[in-house]
């Protein structure tokens, strides 16, 4: 959608035009859903987060300023909601007794010669074992291709913090994936 059209829709939303908001939802819903999914890795949770993100966006549309793009603004809302959801899940998981590290178990038990074909799956698993902020940075900066500045705006931290989280996240993933590279 051209930026001018989007700006006009936002103006109408800010004046209480529900129809304009519907157009914005339809324009961004798939992108928002994909971002939510990349964090929560479940369709049910992605649905909840995406819906909630638009409700939140509508509620605070009056505070939206044109200097940040609408997508970036939505990214911030989705990221915060998805991180909350992950923290919630983490708290619940902590109450359960862990049986084993799923990543390590998966890799070490694999005797399938086509293990390299599963690399992507292992990478995804490694990504989702990262601490939430590192994961958020890897998803936003690398998977979604946002700039360091955009990510820092979304996560409300400095660009240096984004870079540090990115480095640590990638190093950690690499360590988790070392099992795949080791022979035998």
């Amino acid at each position: 959608m051209p930026a001018a059209d989007e700006r006009a829709l936002i103006d109408r939303c800010q004046k209480g035009d529900h129809g304009a908001f519907r157009v914005l939802v339809q324009a961004h819903m798939r992108q928002v859903y994909d971002l939510a999914f990349s964090f929560v890795q479940s369709h049910d949770d992605a649905d909840d987060v995406a819906q909630e993100a638009f409700v939140k966006a509508y509620r605070s549309i009056s505070t939206f300023r044109a200097d940040a793009g609408f997508s970036t603004w939505m990214y911030r809302i989705v990221t915060n909601l998805a991180l909350d959801r992950l923290r919630q899940r983490q708290r619940m998981a902590q109450r359960r007794v862990p049986l084993s590290d799923p990543l390590v178990a998966q890799v070490s038990s694999s005797t399938d010669p086509s293990v390299n074909a599963d690399l992507q799956r292992h990478i995804e698993r490694a990504l989702h074992t990262l601490p939430t902020l590192q994961r958020a940075v890897v998803i936003l900066r690398h998977m979604d291709g946002l700039s360091t500045k955009q990510v820092s705006g979304i996560l409300n931290c400095s660009e240096g913090t984004v870079k540090t989280h990115l480095y640590r996240g990638l190093r950690r993933m690499q360590k988790l994936l070392q099992h795949l590279e080791e022979p035998g």
Binding site: R30, F37, S38, Q120, I123, H142, G145, L170, M173
Partner: peptide, 17 residues
Amino acid sequence: TIGRLLSDLGRGGRSPN
């Protein structure tokens, strides 16, 4: 290490929507 990882990691290939 990061170079190797990034070449494996790919970028936004999947669209769950």
